[in-house]
């Protein structure tokens, strides 16, 4: 089975610090792959390299078996790789619809759109509403309300819906439950599973072991700038995973 997204021998150095040390990575079709690792293990550099925010010094990235170069976040989006950043990357004062279509607005057909650059607000709002209700977020009634009036979980939901709406290949979620309460986390985890059910593979970066073990199909454990091992959450316990992560226990032979 060809991985959707794969990396071979990724290397990234910041001065004398090696953040990525010949790191390998692969994401299979339709799965939720969790990426865990101690602080400073280099997992965020790995994710940044995959989402175009950082340029690796060496190594290759393959998308559906073909070698790609991802110089910017925009390029990643062009490849169908969407990232939900921990900061969510939303403009609080703008509406949900504005935020969902930020940077890829739809214009009116015909002369109004071509010459006068008029936006098609109605169409964008309709699509935004559809995307939200697809993911069970229909409780957000007013699509033109400012994002800052939403709760933390709703904002996360909008960010995930935006990624799901445009991410045709891969969705990367960076600590989606870190800032949320118990109930809201639950809702976001359900969302993640809904997105997988549509067949889009997900990379989930998280520190929350119960969440990781609940939704992940496989767990990529990152240590000292490289992939230590990939485990199946059904075969190991959370304390095993933490022990691998911290080096307290030898990893299984990969």
């Amino acid at each position: 089975m060809t991985p959707v997204l794969a990396a071979k021998g990724l290397t990234k150095r910041y001065g004398r610090v090696t953040a990525l040390d010949r790191c390998d990575f692969d994401l299979r079709p339709g799965e939720i792959l969790a990426v865990i690792g101690d602080n400073g293990a280099g997992k965020s550099t790995l994710i940044k390299a995959l989402s175009g925010a950082v340029q690796p010094d060496g190594g290759e990235i393959h998308l559906n078996g073909e070698k790609v170069v991802i110089p910017t976040p925009l390029a990643a989006r062009g490849h169908g790789i969407e990232t939900v950043y921990q900061t969510l990357a939303m403009s609080p004062a703008l509406s949900i619809a504005d935020n969902m279509f930020m940077g890829r607005e739809l214009r009116k057909p015909g002369i109004m759109g071509k010459v006068f650059r008029k936006l098609d607000h109605a169409r964008m709002e309709r699509i935004a509403r559809d995307k939200l209700s697809d993911l069970g977020l229909a409780t957000i009634q007013n699509i033109s309300q400012a994002v800052e009036t939403l709760s933390g979980g709703q904002r996360q939901g909008v960010a995930v819906a935006r990624a799901a709406a445009f991410g045709s290949q891969v969705i990367i979620l960076d600590e989606p439950t870190a800032a949320l309460g118990v109930k809201e986390s639950r809702k976001v985890l359900e969302l993640i599973q809904d997105v997988r059910a549509r067949g889009i593979p997900i990379i989930l970066i998280s520190h929350n072991m119960p969440h990781v073990f609940e939704v992940a199909d496989r767990i990529h454990i990152h240590r000292l700038g490289r992939r230590l091992c990939v485990i199946d959450p059904k075969d190991y316990t959370m304390s095993d995973a933490v022990a691998f992560m911290t080096g307290a226990k030898e990893p299984p032979a990969a």
Binding site: P73, T87, A89, M90, S91
Partner: peptide, 14 residues
Amino acid sequence: YAVGDDKEAAELAG
């Protein structure tokens, strides 16, 4: 508006 609201967020959003 987006750049004035949060420049970094706008950049990440494309």
